[in-house]
Amino acid sequence: MSALKSNLWLRARIIQSIRGFFIEQGFLEVETPNLISAPAPEVHIDLVATQRGFLHASPELCMKRLLSAGFPKIFQICKCYRDGERGHLHLPEFTLLEWYRTESDYRDLMADCEAMVRHVAGGLGCGKTIQYRGQEIDLQTPWDRVSVEDAFVAYSPISLQEALETDRFDEMMVLHIEPNLNKSRPVFLYDYPATLASLARLKKGSPDKAERFELYMGGLELANAFSELTDPLEQEARFRKENDLREKRGRERYPVSDKFINALRDMPPSAGIAFGVDRLVMLLTGAEKIDDVVCFAPEEL
């Protein structure tokens, strides 16, 4: 109990520090509805359905509509819900930090991550390194950048091509790549296969890749980011494809928001990121499991 108590004090300080950082950088804090009528259909994310719509799995769609409405830099810290996700790093109700910036791409978000985490760690008196469960993590910038392609060559027993064809990409990621990423420095794993990024812009000159990255620290997956897709027709087609894939795997199709698709017409080139707040708190408190950084796990209710 005492460990949880000190973790909750640190959690509050971390969230206040994140807020301070984005306000300082000129971002507007927003609160979008958690109860929505149409989510972004994604093959591997199941929503919590209610009698009047869905609890959002991410505030992404509403936040992008705000970019189209003329807000250039916005952030939000909110609860998100994903059905069936429970493990030592997963809660079906968890806290996400998302931020979006116009006239930017995913490289700007990498710089944001570096500055934000250093700001928060510094505020806790960690200095330029943090300790996570016996592992020292050096926060000196620039952090490591490893392409998904190179990571497969270095660590996966099968090629990226084969992993995609046999539906084993995530298996290779979890079993062979994630455990081998450098744990002594934060790592941006970037340029994901185009088929694995339904809301991301494709990379200029290499249409088989999407401008997407994930941030790993001390072996924890902390954030997922991309340069945003702003083409409404392309987005509609990709949502349809995700719903088809869901159906193929015996999962329900989700409704698509026309208002979101239409709003993309007015959306400037932008980049956005979802950052797991609970996991950042784990990292900065040394917690072994996500249960140790929240007031109550679902099983305790």
Binding site: H44, I45, E85, D170, M173, V174, L196, E221
Partner: peptide
Amino acid sequence: FTKPGKGQA
């Protein structure tokens, strides 16, 4: 239980 954010469980 493991699951990359966008990936399969």
